[in-house]
Write a protein that binds this DNA or RNA. Structure first.
Length: 426
RNA sequence: GUGAGUGUAGUUCAAUUGGUUAGAGCUCUGGAUUGUGGUUCCAGCUGUUGGGGGUUCGAGUCCCCUCACUCACCCCA
């Protein structure tokens, strides 16, 4: 092809689109079941928004934004959905609404990174925000909800990691403590890490260098340096998870890359090896949008985001097959042309009117051709209306899974009942 | 952004130290079966070997450039 696409982008077309679409519907259904309301903001957002929320020093802001040619102020393709959504809710006076306080989204986001497995430049994120006071029930529901999504798609190889990254009262103190520790030991750190001491202290924990690992091993941990409020919040979350039989690991090294996170944070990590080195399925936690010249008060809440493509990569093949089936027609009608075609169309229109997913092959074709097509389309039932059936005022109903078939009276109401019972058996 | 690897049919992979017309499975199309699919059998289609340049009598194979993908770092969903 002479026209090249942007790397790290892809098109959603069959068969994969069937899985994608089913995943989307299932996710949205779960959110609604938990009382969350759908939202989606524009893909085009002011750069300023992300600078002030996810942080001027964050990787996303410093090197991963797609800039759009436009008048001032500079606009970017949104790299995440939380900040645009929170600001939109604030502008529309919904940030402290009691009617609407829980929101979900399913939207495209953009990050200019080098693509690899599980990492794209344009990808979908699903996520939720629950605005209001910090409460263990809010955090807990978020985690239950996130896990519910993984379970819905038969994903079993994952771990839940939690941490508390502190708040304005204890976080800065801890960082200073950590900086002092690394400065004392900087001779044993690699050059990269020496540079990180002042700019990106926490990232030293991620270094793969053996010497750095050794130094990190004895470094002070955030979990040992929390203020009483954070400590209490963390314990409450653990209690909640225990009460709800959720197993978790405390991972004091979890770092959130976005500045607005505070206190309890969590991550669902894939352990089945389906995501290569990009193992994070879902990341989330509590956050605080500090009051400034735009926000009149602090906005607090808890939320999470998951990558749709990573989720799909983690879904077992047999589950994907079922999802595809969910998206295909229930009934496919085979006719033999002429009057059988005319009569078949009436059946099709009737069934559609009754909410049965029904389709028909417009052209005249041999029966084995149509059945083969029906099989490829994953339909559950085929109705056959040939000259033979028409002359007896009957229609053949064939279950494509079992192969069982029977002739029934060519009467729409009787047909509908038969179809309903057959479908519910599949 | 840094480093490494791989690019051959729709797809998964072959092709002797460079040697003639680049092959096979699956998919696909048609038939066996003009009223029974998913199994089986038979037949058939599909390629600027990612692109460009170079070396050579001769390049899928060697060299250079470029692009794409993959993996890792980094980071994150």
């Amino acid at each position: 092809m002479s026209i090249e696409k942007e790397k790290g982008t892809y098109d959603i077309i069959p068969d994969d689109s069937l899985v994608f679409y089913s995943v989307r519907k299932n996710i949205e259904k779960i959110f609604q079941t938990y009382g969350y309301f759908f939202c989606e903001t524009s893909s085009i957002q002011p750069e300023e928004l992300f600078k002030r929320t996810i942080g001027i020093a964050s990787d996303i802001v410093t090197k991963e934004m797609f800039y759009i040619e436009s008048d001032k102020p500079r606009f970017v393709l949104k790299p995440e959905e939380t900040a645009p959504l929170i600001f939109s809710l604030f502008e529309n006076r919904l940030a402290d609404s009691k009617v609407y306080e829980k929101f979900f989204y399913f939207t495209k986001v953009y990050r200019h990174e080098k693509p690899q497995k599980g990492r794209l430049r344009e990808f979908y994120q699903y996520g939720a925000e629950s605005l209001g006071d910090f409460k263990k029930e809010r955090d807990g529901e978020m985690i239950l909800l996130a896990e519910k999504i993984l379970n819905q798609f038969g994903i079993e190889d994952y771990e839940l990691n939690i941490n508390n990254i502190g708040c304005k009262n204890c976080r800065a103190g801890y960082l200073n403590l950590l900086k002092d520790y690394f400065k004392k030991n900087q001779d044993n750190l690699c050059k990269d890490c020496q540079r990180k001491i002042d700019t990106n202290t926490l990232r030293i924990f991620d270094c793969k260098n053996e010497n750095c690992k050794k130094v990190s091993l004895n470094a002070p941990l955030i979990t040992d340096n929390l203020c009483s409020s954070c400590k209490n919040d963390f314990e409450e979350l653990k209690d909640f998870l225990k009460e709800n039989d959720l197993s978790y690991n405390v991972n004091p090294y979890i770092v959130r890359g976005l500045d607005y996170y505070e206190k309890n944070v969590f991550e669902f990590v894939e352990t089945g090896g389906n995501l290569g080195s990009q193992s994070t399925l879902i990341g989330g936690g509590r956050y605080r949008y500090k009051k400034d010249n735009v926000l009149k008060n602090d906005i607090t809440g808890v939320g999470f985001a998951g990558g749709v493509e990573r989720l799909i990569l983690s879904i077992p093949e047999n589950v994907k097959k079922d999802l595809k089936r969910e998206e295909s027609c229930d009934v496919y009608v085979a006719h033999m042309g002429g009057k059988t075609f005319e009569r078949s169309l009436k059946v099709v229109y009737f069934l559609r009117e009754k909410g049965i997913k029904t389709d028909i092959f417009y052209n005249e074709a041999r029966i084995n051709k149509i059945l083969s097509l029906a099989s490829k389309k994953n339909v559950k039932l085929v109705l056959i209306l040939g000259e033979e059936e028409l002359s007896e005022e009957k229609i053949t109903l064939k279950n494509m899974e079992t192969g069982f078939q029977k002739k029934i009276k060519l009467d729409e109401k009787i047909l509908l009942e038969e179809i309903k019972t057959e479908i519910s058996n599949v």
